[in-house]
Design a protein around this nucleic acid. Structure first.
Ligand SMILES: Nc1ccn([C@H]2C[C@H](O)[C@@H](COP(=O)(O)OP(=O)(O)OP(=O)(O)O)O2)c(=O)n1
Ligand SMILES: [Mg+2]
Ligand SMILES: [Mg+2]
Length: 1016
DNA sequence: ATCCTCCCCTAC
DNA sequence: TAAGGTAGGGGAGGAT
């Protein structure tokens, strides 16, 4: 029975089916609407993205286009972003229009659906249909064929209104399939036994059927005609169409596109081709810092994490596009079936907060949502817009920080601990919310001013995208994530260290990131645990026994707000896959054409994966292919055209090795992949009419120029380019990823849900400030606001630049992980490093500043504080290390520092004043210097510092720095910045600048730390 | 011990 | 009408 006329998988038949075409949302994303205010990722990226894709994946099409483009001139891409369908007889004819459209960058749609087409070409149309076109949810332009030809002649897209086709009374034919006019549809037996309902209410798991199952769905489909567009059976374009419409595909594949953007940006920045990106930019030093993952991130230093997540992202975009719906209950969903009697099983992707108040959540059927809220409005997807805005958001984040991990289409983590100070325009000591260009920027440390940082970023996001974002701040990624939940919607929240437990235990179990359905079920079964509080009482050992060593520990730690996760800006993908489990319906295998179609479908997915591999520049070693087969006795799926209850048949194997990263190799890989997949399919012996889903998964990926120890593809360059995007961005520390190995713990994030907390009250601010104010709850909010107003004037240059990293370098080599980042400084001659530091430095206004000379090696035994007035001319270098070392004690520092300050005649008399406004900045500085970096808290005393006490704090900070960095030598420079202040009209009365330079005992790495503080 | 492979689970 | 995809972490158990 299995004829060998199964189509050649690598052959052209497959290629034409799969015809990948760029993701339309990317395509469509760029030209849409006005360019975002100003933080466009890079105007050309999207275009470049498609150019690249086209180049790689659409050779044939390109050729076709080339034929026409000779006469096309600059109209070459005229139809870019358009999807055009031709209906009925036209002049010129359908074929010709198709060729024209394709030749000029557009897409031709064989089938019409309002969702997939932008233009509907016909010579005449009925009034009714025309009206429908205008009023339906998806706007489709109806035009005559002239519009195509005239636009081409004109070299520009002409107004569609001028080319509306003739209207006729009632053509009686041309039955558009999307209408409700399903008339004599003979299929879709309404055999809705209780079974399907069961499945509906259940968790939608395959195993929960078990029931009688007498009612076979044998009646279901073999061949249908009216609905055929939606199934694999009759629609050779199904794969593309499906992916085009699938929200899960959209969010699932975001990462791949994001990776791709990085490549584009790299190239735009002159870093060469994608291949060069992978290979490493030869102009850059090849090494990089290992630092992050192996030390600072994990070794108990205190860090500050920020998590940013868009509020009901899709829904919020929808509200902006339909302003009249703002604030009304609204969901984003394919179906528009309205009214409480609707029977729509369309899944809700996102619900706005008005809708959530009815209990409506993502994943819910529209039908159920409409029962909950009869006035609910359903708005269709606009993936292009989500994509555009998502990139806007991420660009904003990268503008202010490089240590950003984009974890999904609408959220990201930032480790702000070591991020560059960011500029804020200020007026009269407060934030200039109008970003008045005239006002001088001040610089703030995001770690010490995380609230302000978040507020700033959120405001910018809203300004640029029109959508609100929420942010969470916490000591680790988990707490930041949870804080975001508590902050939503449109708020921000910090989980204080001391309150982590309290906040976590206030959550429902299901709100703990990583704790899903199965885990809750097990917890209930095994331990009778139904709440966080109960979970806390379970011992680590018991959890490990049930969930495994790692998972159990994670659960144990997670429920206590602990995790060791770190922010990883870039991780190369370790697998690439494509799967479809919806709409898969073929006729009986006794019909040869049905067998053939099924085989083609399977091959199309394999081909799709091959294309994705190529786009990522990856060669795969392992491939595994899964088939979903309707389980015998399973009833109809509760979701129309869903896979229903299935058995999974899994096949895997190793691909023949392909060498090199040429076009040829990828062609071979595709052929191999398709061949293997086809064999699996044939070997499975699954009858075509029982196939419900296919997935093709490639793993063990190899990327170009992946050398041992450098398996993190392109990371150094990408980090570099983010810095350059930030222009003058600072430091340069980045993540290292381990080559192939997992190795890290995690507790995952986000379980969306109708959480209604929405509480933005920053109740217990750090003891520092709260001590100054009465515990008046009403004042809390006010205080928060005023606090933002009263930010420290300038806190700047808090560098921790590793100037030498030889030890880390060799360690990284030994351990085979990639390094990147900070070693931009590595091996730089001292003066160049200084130059860099200078560039990094706040306003570039520090010229004439002598701190660089001040940095010199001094053994601790001769700890020598130099105090100089600004512009102190030539100070001779302090004596060079004499080799002796001695622990720097706080006593030493305390003894010397005050004396030196006093000698300098820079009397910080203001410190003695007990004005709250005055001390807020001081406290913030302490945050910057002490708590963020060296993990110390301010004591009560700190809040009313005497001179002694204040200098003591500085001394303490230095001491801790010595311990933390294992310093051998320290030199400290403190100088007055009074001139600077006056010149820049700062309202500060005293600036303190201090730098110290240190030698790491173990690695001989030279550190330079410093701070600049202005006190008002 | 450390790997790999074949799952299950989770999040968006 | 409706578009139930994608990728990573980690456990169990076997191969090395
Ligand atoms: N089951 C889901 C979950 C999410 N999404 C999409 C729609 C969401 O808008 C987007 C982002 O997911 P979030 O979990 O961040 O949810 P929202 O942004 O919609 O809401 P929230 O304000 O809770 O973040 O992903 C989806 O299609 N289906
Ligand atoms: Mg969100
Ligand atoms: Mg999200």
């Amino acid at each position: 029975m299995e004829g060998k006329e199964v189509v050649e998988p690598g052959g052209s038949a497959v290629a034409s089916i799969a015809a990948p075409g760029e993701p339309w949302w990317v395509e469509a994303a760029r030209p849409k609407g006005a360019a975002p205010e100003r933080y466009d990722w890079d105007g050309g990226s999207f275009k470049a993205y498609m150019r690249e894709k086209n180049r790689k994946l659409q050779e044939q099409n390109e050729k076709k286009r080339a034929v026409r483009s000779s006469d096309a001139g600059k109209t070459h891409r005229l139809f870019e972003g358009l999807a055009i369908h031709v209906s009925g007889r036209t002049l010129p004819g359908r074929e010709e229009i198709r060729d024209l459209v394709v030749a000029h960058g557009g897409r031709y749609e064989t089938y019409f659906t309002p969702a997939s087409c932008t233009h509907f070409v016909c010579s005449s149309i009925s009034f009714a249909k025309a009206k429908q076109m205008k009023t339906q949810r998806h706007r489709v332009h109806v035009v005559s064929a002239d519009w195509i030809t005239k636009s081409l002649q004109a070299g520009t897209l002409l107004a569609v209104s001028e080319f509306f086709p003739d209207c006729v009374q009632d053509p009686g034919q041309t039955r558009l399939r999307f209408g409700s006019s399903d008339g004599g549809n003979s299929m879709a037996p309404k055999v809705s036994t209780g079974l399907s309902e069961e499945e509906n209410e259940q968790h939608n798991d395959e195993d929960d059927d078990g029931q009688e199952g007498s009612e076979e769905e044998a009646t279901e489909p073999p061949v249908e005609t009216a609905r055929s567009l939606r199934t694999t059976s009759e629609n050779p374009d199904f794969v593309r169409q499906f992916f085009q419409q699938s929200r899960l595909h959209f969010i699932g594949s975001f990462r791949a596109r994001y990776e791709h953007y990085l490549g584009i940006v790299a190239r735009n920045l002159g870093l060469g081709s994608a291949a060069d990106l992978v290979r490493g930019n030869p102009t850059l030093p090849q090494k990089s810092t290992p630092s992050y993952g192996c030390e600072s991130g994990s070794t108990g230093s205190s860090r500050v994490f920020v998590h940013v997540d868009m509020d009901c992202f899709f829904a919020s975009v929808a509200e902006n596009l339909r302003p009249e719906l703002k604030g009304k209950p609204l969901v984003v969903c394919h179906s528009s079936n309205s009214g409480p009697n609707s029977d729509s099983r369309g899944e809700i992707s996102s619900a706005n907060y008005a809708a959530r108040s009815f209990g409506i959540k993502a994943g819910m059927f529209l039908r159920k949502a409409q029962q909950l809220c009869p006035t609910l409005v359903s708005v269709p997807y606009d993936f292009a817009e989500y994509e555009r805005l998502s990139v806007c958001v991420m660009t904003i984040l990268f503008k202010y920080a490089w240590c950003v991990q984009v974890s999904s289409v609408d959220e990201a983590y930032i480790d702000v601990t070591d991020q560059p100070f960011w500029p804020v325009r200020c007026v009269r000591g407060g934030i200039d919310s109008n970003a008045n260009q005239a006002s001088p920027p001040r610089h703030f440390n995001p770690a010490a001013n995380a609230e302000l940082f978040c507020a700033h970023i959120r405001a910018e996001i809203q300004r640029v995208t029109g959508c609100t974002a929420s942010a969470g701040i916490g000591r680790n990624m988990l707490l930041a994530r949870v804080a975001t939940m508590l902050a939503k919607p449109n708020g921000q929240f910090r989980i204080q260290d001391s309150e982590a437990l309290a906040h976590i235990s206030s959550l429902a179990l299901r709100d703990l990131p990583g704790l899903g359905y199965r885990t809750r079920e097990k917890l209930a079964e095994e331990f009778g645990v139904h709440s966080v509080r109960e979970l806390v009482s379970i011992s680590r050992a018991r959890l490990q026994q049930t969930f495994g060593e790692h998972a159990g520990a994670q659960l144990y730690d997670g429920v206590r707000g602990e995790t060791t996760d770190i922010v990883q800006p870039l991780k190369p993908r370790r697998s690439i896959s494509a799967a479809i489990g919806w709409g898969v319906r073929f006729g009986s295998p006794s019909i040869p054409s049905e067998r053939e179609k099924a085989a083609l479908f399977v091959a199309a997915l394999a081909s799709e994966v091959a294309d994705r591999l190529q786009l990522a520049g990856a060669l795969a070693k392992r491939v595994s292919v899964d088939f979903l087969r309707k389980r015998p006795g399973a009833g109809p799926p509760f979701k129309p055209l869903g896979h229903g209850i299935c058995d999974r048949f899994s096949f895997s194997g190793t691909l023949a090795e392909v060498r090199g990263f040429t076009e040829d190799s990828f062609a071979k890989q595709k052929a191999n992949l398709c061949a293997v997949t086809r064999e699996f399919w044939q070997g499975s012996n699954i009858p075509s009419d029982e196939l419900r889903g296919v997935s093709v998964h490639a793993s063990n990926l190899k990327f170009e120029a992946t050398e041992p120890g450098h398996s993190v593809v392109g990371m150094p360059n990408v980090v570099e380019l983010f810095e350059r995007m930030q222009k003058g961005g600072m430091a340069v520390k980045a993540v290292s990823g381990r080559a192939g190995v997992s190795g890290r713990k995690r507790l995952r994030l986000d379980d969306h849900d109708g959480e209604d907390t929405g509480n933005d009250d920053n109740s217990g601010r750090r003891n520092a400030k709260s001590l100054f104010r009465a515990a008046d709850p009403a004042a809390a909010e006010k205080r928060r606001l005023s606090r933002v107003q009263l930010q420290p004037t300038v806190v700047s240059v808090d560098s921790d630049l590793r100037l030498s990293q030889s030890l880390r370098l060799s360690k990284a080599r030994r351990e085979g992980y990639a390094m990147l980042g900070a070693d931009a400084f590595h091996g730089l001659p001292r003066d160049q490093a200084m130059q860099l530091i200078h560039d990094i430095d706040v306003n570039y206004k520090m010229q004439g500043f002598t701190q660089m000379q001040a940095i010199s090696r001094m053994p601790i035994s001769r700890l020598n504080f130099q105090l100089v007035k600004r512009k102190a001319k030539s100070r001779e270098e302090a004596p060079v290390a004499n080799g002796k070392t001695k622990a720097l004690t706080i006593a030493d520092t305390r003894r010397v520092l005050p004396r030196k300050i006093e000698e300098s005649k820079i009397l910080p008399s203001l410190w003695l004043e007990s004005s709250t406004e005055l001390f807020n900045p001081i406290c913030d500085w302490m945050d910057a210097v002490v708590s963020a970096r060296i993990d110390s808290r301010l004591s009560e005393q700190d809040l009313c510092p005497t001179f002694d006490h204040a200098t003591g704090i500085i001394a303490g900070a230095i001491e801790r720095a010595v311990a933390f960095f294992r310093l051998k030598e320290v030199s400290v420079l403190i100088l007055s910045m009074r001139d600077y202040i006056l010149r820049n009209q700062c309202r500060s009365d005293l600036f303190l600048v201090w730098y110290y330079q240190v030698l790491d005992r173990s690695s001989q790495a030279l550190h330079m730390c410093g701070g600049l503080q202005a006190f008002r």
